[in-house]
């Protein structure tokens, strides 16, 4: 194929990023940082996305480990189910979450009796993020763990390791690049979550207003502020990507 054919997409992908960089001024950035909308949103975004990431890794690793080794129709069915949130639009996820945990939802009565009200709270932000981001981690971790030679695990076991120790000391280190990549992807996805959060957690400043929602709100009052917040969030995401690509390369070349 002609080398020229690769330019349209690359230009198309690069232009908006360039535009964002070129149109924002340092003064705008500084002003945005001091704006009452920004601080709480940054803190909330970092806090909720990191909590989500921790929950995803802690609950996702056992699932990935099982999926990596299980054969048969059950495991394939579960694998498809876990991937479902990747293809389902976030807005649909938001409605589905309301149907599950909302006041009129499936578990609404039960939760209300326990005195728990989930929608429109910070916990709801985390729930929405876990829901949309977890599949990315499980997918990548499963692929990585599936690539671990079963003979390595058998060797570890014959050397006295319990199944648990064989997982932590042999399988996980062997699958580390894929597990880390999955974690970074899931974190980036949680950080950028918008649709499901808006529907299930709302857009309450200081409580459920994460950075993407703050950008959405700022757009209505101050384009410069929205621009600066977008640059900030974009920078964070870029840092994740950089960490994802550069750190493993550094480790490979000691």
């Amino acid at each position: 194929m002609s080398a020229l054919l690769r330019w349209p997409l690359l230009a198309f992908l690069g232009l908006p990023v360039l535009a964002l960089l070129l149109t924002s001024t340092p003064g705008e950035l500084a002003a945005a940082w001091r704006h009452p909308l920004a601080g709480p949103a940054v803190v909330l975004s970092l806090r909720t996305s990191l909590v989500s990431l921790a929950l995803i890794v802690a609950t996702g690793l056992p699932v990935a480990w099982w999926l990596a080794r299980a054969r048969g129709p059950w495991a394939r069915a579960v694998e498809t189910l876990v991937e479902l949130p990747v293809v389902i639009p976030p807005a649909v996820v938001g409605v589905a979450l309301l149907q599950a945990y909302g006041r009129q939802g499936l578990l609404g009565d039960g939760l209300a009796r326990l005195g728990v009200q989930l929608p429109f709270t910070e916990a709801a932000v985390v729930v929405a993020q876990v829901m949309v981001a977890a599949p990315f981690f499980v997918q990548s971790a499963t692929a990585g763990l599936r690539g671990v030679d079963p003979d390595l695990l058998l060797v570890a076991r014959t050397l006295g390791a319990s199944p648990t120790r064989a997982f932590w000391r042999v399988a996980l280190p062997a699958a580390r690049p894929a597990v880390l990549a999955g974690a970074a992807l899931a974190w980036a996805r949680a950080l950028g979550e918008f649709g499901a959060t808006l529907l299930f957690a709302g857009n309450l400043s200081g409580r459920t207003q994460t950075m993407p929602l703050a950008i959405f709100s700022a757009l209505e009052v101050d384009l410069g502020l929205a621009r600066a917040l977008a640059l900030l969030l974009g920078g964070l995401a870029f840092a994740v990507l950089l960490g994802l690509r550069v750190l493993p390369a550094l480790r490979r070349a000691p």
Partner: peptide, 13 residues
Amino acid sequence: VGYLPQGYGLFAH
């Protein structure tokens, strides 16, 4: 039992 699989099964890390 001491098991050496094909390729020896050393832990690369």
